Amino acid sequence: MVHYSEARLDTAFAALSDATRRGVLEQLGRSEASITELADRFHMTLTGMKKHISVLERAGLVTTRKVGRVRTCRSGLSGLEEEAAWIENYRKMWSARFEALDEVIEELQAQENDDERHGK
């Protein structure tokens, strides 16, 4: 089984748990933006947006650079590969369980149909 860094997963999923931060990532996926532009876009204070950006930076999802008085944000280096692999592992497990359940249901339905035909 693949081993994942719990701290990294916790940090990334915590960062992704907030709708505003997911919106910021979506926006930065289209183009970089200053913290001021992001705060305006999401109708929040500059301080509030700085906190969101800080959480995203700690998770490696956003990088910032300061030029003069403007701090510009862009998508980070983390491509969420480890997180996607973790999710995929569980998706495969649940898919296998649902397929097994489907087989049981099909067997029960076939048995029920057979019983009905034989008057049981």
Rank of each mutant, 00 (worst) to 15 (best):
M49N: 02
V55C: 02
L16G: 00
Q109Y: 14
H3C: 10
R65I: 09
A59V: 04
V67Q: 14
T36S: 15
G79P: 03
C73G: 01
G29S: 06
I87W: 03
M49K: 01
S75W: 04
G79I: 02
W94P: 05
E112Y: 07
R71F: 07
A14W: 08
G76P: 04
L108M: 15
L38M: 14
E82W: 05
V104G: 10
M49C: 06
E106R: 14
C73H: 01
E112K: 14
A19S: 15
L16R: 01
V2F: 10
D115S: 07
D102Y: 11
D10I: 01
A15Q: 00
E116P: 06
G68K: 07
R58H: 04
L108P: 10
G119I: 05
H52I: 03
A84S: 09
S54C: 00
R74I: 12
E103L: 10
M93C: 12
M1C: 15
T36I: 09
G48R: 13
D10Q: 04
A39N: 03
L25E: 12
E6V: 13
L61D: 08
K51F: 06
H118G: 11
D18H: 13
E107I: 03
R65T: 03
A19N: 13
T36E: 13
I53M: 02
T63A: 14
S34L: 02
F42C: 00
L101Y: 14
R58L: 07
C73W: 01
H3I: 11
V67W: 14
H52L: 02
E82S: 11
V104R: 12
W94Y: 15
V2A: 06
E112G: 11
D114W: 09
E26W: 13
R117G: 10
K50L: 11
L28S: 00
N89L: 14
L28D: 01
R65E: 11
A33K: 14
L80S: 00
A39G: 01
I87E: 03
V24P: 04
E99W: 07
S54H: 05
D102F: 08
V2C: 08
R74P: 12
K120S: 14
R21Y: 03
L9K: 00
E6K: 05
T20M: 07
S5M: 12
A7N: 15
A84T: 08
I105S: 05
A96V: 06
G48Y: 03
E37Y: 00
A59N: 06
A84I: 03
E37T: 10
E99K: 10
R65L: 02
A39K: 05
R41C: 08
L9C: 02
E32T: 15
R74H: 12
Q111L: 13
E32Y: 09
N89C: 04
V70R: 13
F42R: 05
S34F: 02
R22Y: 10
I105V: 07
R21V: 04
R22E: 03
T36F: 06
D114M: 08
F13R: 01
N113F: 10
